[in-house]
């Protein structure tokens, strides 16, 4: 049986965390494929409904970076 891999949604601020992910990409760094990155204009825009919907659609965890 394959090892459990949680599906993680990463909600990232455009101005810091998403920019960092971008930079990481240009440096050819990798992150696990079970992390899905979604860009937010700002984590101040984060809404509890985004998190609830993520869980409803099957995410095992939500990672907010901003």
């Amino acid at each position: 049986m394959a090892e459990y891999q949680p599906e993680i949604l990463a909600l990232c601020c455009n101005y810091c965390a998403f920019a960092a992910a971008d930079l990481a990409g240009s440096m050819r760094l990798t992150y696990p494929s079970n992390v899905k990155v979604v860009r937010l204009n700002c984590t101040g825009k984060l809404d509890i409904l985004y998190i609830m919907r993520a869980f409803e659609k099957g995410a095992d965890g939500v990672f907010v970076a901003g």
Partner: peptide, 16 residues
């Protein structure tokens, strides 16, 4: 409206 969304989501998450 926001609380309707959150409560509905909580009910779905618990039951489904």
């Amino acid at each position: 409206e926001k609380e309707v969304g959150v409560l509905s989501s909580m009910i779905r998450l618990a039951r489904n």
